[in-house]
Amino acid sequence: MEYENRPVPEGINVSDEHPLVDFAWMLATVAVLVTVLVIALSLSAGWLARQVPMAQENSWAQTYIEAQPRELSDEALRKQRWLQTLADQLSPAMALEPDMTIRVHYVEDDSVINAFATLGGNVVIYSGLIQAVDSENALAMVMAHEIAHIKHRDPITALGRGVAVALGLSAIGGASDSAMAQQIVGNVGMLSGLTFSRSQEHAADKQAIDALLAHYGHLNGAATLFQELQKMEPRLMPEFMATHPLTEKRIARLTQAASGHPAGETTPLPAWLK
């Protein structure tokens, strides 16, 4: 009997397809599926979250605020009251629902140039933001923008979306039992989620422009904060990775909106506010 070992045939277990081509196809397919899932979850969860009555949202926020009492100095209280007055002057122009009340909170931190709107009609303004603006108009632009978020019910929508998307993504990521898959799914999901965030910001900017026109009759000085921010922030991230639209785009929209209106005087900020 003759015995022999033939050479191992090549190409049966090792396919010719380039690993990068294979990888690119898989990545593209997963990206499309995750994007579709995130969009579906975001739309449905956002819609569901907006069904929560505003009164219910207010009471949730109230419990949270009462649990964490804040001590403000007399000076800070005076500033907070001034900011509240500004919000109350802008609100009528924005046609808020009857049970939407805007409550402004002033936070003393000069290093933070930020303001945000959160659940229950609460708006937080940092002192750093006040330092960065040079007129009431610029501050009103920010205030109206935050009030617009509340009018659009963006905080609770974002919360609903966040929970639903996080659950959905961890369900897929967890199913594969691999840290790598979780990371890829997570990153793709985050990027598609950000488009919702940017469209909310865009809508809030638009609403704020209308409110400023109604209140001041012009848009002079409204863009100064954005111009300051543009000077400060290095352009590191492309827009598709950011929560907000590009600052230059926001300035461009403001300039465009201002073009059809007469230029008026800007209102200075009281000196004690800074």
Binding site: P19, D22, F23, M26, L27, T29, V30, I172, A175, S176, D177, S178, M180, A181, I184, V185
Partner: peptide
């Protein structure tokens, strides 16, 4: 990573 993606698909 490629195998992780493959596991999903």
């Amino acid at each position: 990573t490629a195998a992780a993606l493959r596991n999903l698909l």
